[in-house]
């Protein structure tokens, strides 16, 4: 799966969680939770959707490595089977 495709999926999920936002405007190093006002319930939903879409099972202990778009892309490109 290409980085573009992964990004597309991430944006789709973020738009579902934060409908009023435009994730494509996120800078690669911007803290997503802060930028889109994501709380812990939103975050849980994000990881549920990510699991549904991409099949990745991200353990809670890894949440800290997924703060920005570029971190997510790095993490996911490694973990998608």
């Amino acid at each position: 799966m290409s980085e573009e495709q992964i990004k597309h999926v991430i944006f789709k999920i973020l738009r579902r969680i934060a409908p009023e936002s435009d994730p494509s405007r996120l800078a690669p190093d911007e803290n997503i939770r802060r930028a889109l006002d994501i709380d812990s319930f939103d975050a849980l939903n994000f990881f549920i959707h990510l699991h549904e879409e991409l099949g990745v099972n991200i353990p809670e202990s890894d949440y800290g490595q997924l703060n920005t778009l570029s971190e997510m892309l790095d993490y996911l490109s490694v973990h998608i089977g």
């Binding site: 990881f47 809670e60 202990s61």
Partner: peptide
């Protein structure tokens, strides 16, 4: 919480709340 959530699928994870 961490050990409980390790036992659970993402969908069943428990929030700190």
């Amino acid at each position: 919480l961490e050990s409980e959530n390790l036992k659970r699928s993402i969908k069943e994870r428990i929030l700190l709340a």
